[in-house]
Amino acid sequence: MNTKNKKLVKDYWGYIFIAPFIIIFIIFALYPIANTFFLSFTNANIIHGMPGNIIGFNNFISLFNDPMFIRALQNTWLLWLGNFIPQMILALVLAAMFSSTTFKLKGTGFFKAIYYLPNLLMPVTVAALFQHYLTLHGPINSFLVGTTGLMSEPRNFLQFATDTRFTVMFIQTWMWFGQTAIVLVSGMTSISPSYYESAMVDGASQTRMFFKITLPLLKPVLLFVLVTSLVGGMQMFDIPLLLSDGPLGPPDMSVLTMNMFMRARMNHPANAIGSAAAVSVILFFISSFVALILFRVFRTDEQKQQKKQRRVETNG
């Protein structure tokens, strides 16, 4: 009896601890988010009056019938995957190198600090820098054509779809791989070294340990990285916009992302808040759906055990 009371009293603290979050959320976030969902079912327009008239699912239907929205969807996925995959590989390799107990590398702190630097820059700054570098008579062309002769004629990189896309992917990777590595390292340092010690006693190699111990134990942190990258990637916006210097991601809308599409609908001359809200909602559901899959895939063995146990309990 005593233990049960104690447990209840202790658990009451759960409510107290989450109270600040809930209060602030209700005050500041609930209305805007709910409003967005609501607006997605209207034809609200900034100039002609909000909230406008309710038009049911029309916004969603026209978006899915809109080849440009579909293109934006494809671009968003392309640009995200093209940046996330190299970024993840790079970050995992780095994290493994930095937390390796057998081959101790010097100066890991220093390197980590440097690799995070690109993330500290404002996207505006980064885009401006790269734009400056990539012009027809700019430094990169001068280097490739004049100094080294690797190319015979200069190339107006930002006027070509593949080049622009590649540049966006490169910049995104460049800006985020350091942060990802840091998160992975902080996760790795939380793995008890006793696991590795016993494995080494058993004669396991570095790579084997990495794949059989590190990665599985890193699952929660990996999940975090995946999901946050997914959410960020689906919302990718500033780099493609600022680099291509046109609201619709020229040339020929090759770097138009869903978020840029949304902005274009929200701003002048469309002012179509309802349509923009619908894009937001679609983005949300896409992210949710993929995130659900990721959660499934990354369930740790503990959680699987817990679920099994619960099933046994209810059935038994």
């Binding site: 006027q159 040339p251 020929d252």
Partner: peptide
Amino acid sequence: AIGDEWQDAVGAYLEGQ
């Protein structure tokens, strides 16, 4: 807004995109 899109399209055409 429209003029910018026109110029972007023409630019991409001139470059060969």
